[in-house]
Amino acid sequence: MESSLPQVARPLPRRRTVHYTLSLWLLAAPLLLLIAAPVLALVARVDFSLFLANLTSNVVIRAISLSLVTSLIATLLALCFGLPLAYLLARRQFRGKMIVDTLIDLPMILPPAVAGIALLLAFGRRGLIGAPLAEFGITLAFTQVAVIMAQTFVAAPYFVKAATAALLGVERELEQSAALDGASPLQVFVAITIPLSWPVLSSGLVMTWARALGEFGATIIFAGNLAGRTQTMPLAIYLGFERDLQLAIVLALVLLGVAFLVLLIVKGWLRQRVGAV
């Protein structure tokens, strides 16, 4: 592997590079257009005086803050519980590993509405786990906990998948030599494994956050829709479309704008960190 690298890295004649780059852009253009056109169409359709008026409206502020808080908590939960799971999948051999691995894939395949119904059947007041909980006076459906659970259910697999790949990519020799020098397993994990896998881990976190922020189907079914309590941005947008197209477009733009900004900031920060390493 290593020996073939210099060959690839040998610079091509300048004109050929330009040609290659140009044809790559041409090939990428349809996809870029498919993604950019709807976003631009939303911006083009918006009435900007309405936009400013709606930006500070109660519905928008409550929905956006609820969305940010819940999606952030869902991402943290994915990190806390997803990392150990990813570690098991990447580093340990055990019976039923294929089954666990495939189980993690399921939420990515399930239509979100089905996910919502499944969550309700498990954690609802009459559900498999929800019924015993209700005996203790704990109800989850229609609460913010349900919003976070729905988002975690749908989004966490993206982090587990990314983290498993990240951990598999870390060279074991480096970890082993640290262990030989007397580092404890935890020290190895914190000082060697995490920093080495950080670029992939962090992009997995960003993807998980983005998916949680956009979560709609599972949330509206499991957590319901109540402004200020369980109505996240995607719910407000969806119901807005049935009432007032302009308001819905404003809400959608706010969501897109916030997501775009956060992603840019996080990516810029990551590039700095990775560059400094």
Binding site: G124, R125, F142, I220, E242
Partner: peptide
């Protein structure tokens, strides 16, 4: 007392049917 404003009347009925 409203816990949720469902997106359709069928969804509203389903929540009652499921006992939620």
């Amino acid at each position: 007392n409203v816990r949720s404003y469902e997106d359709s009347v069928r969804a509203t009925f389903t929540k009652v049917l499921l006992g939620e």
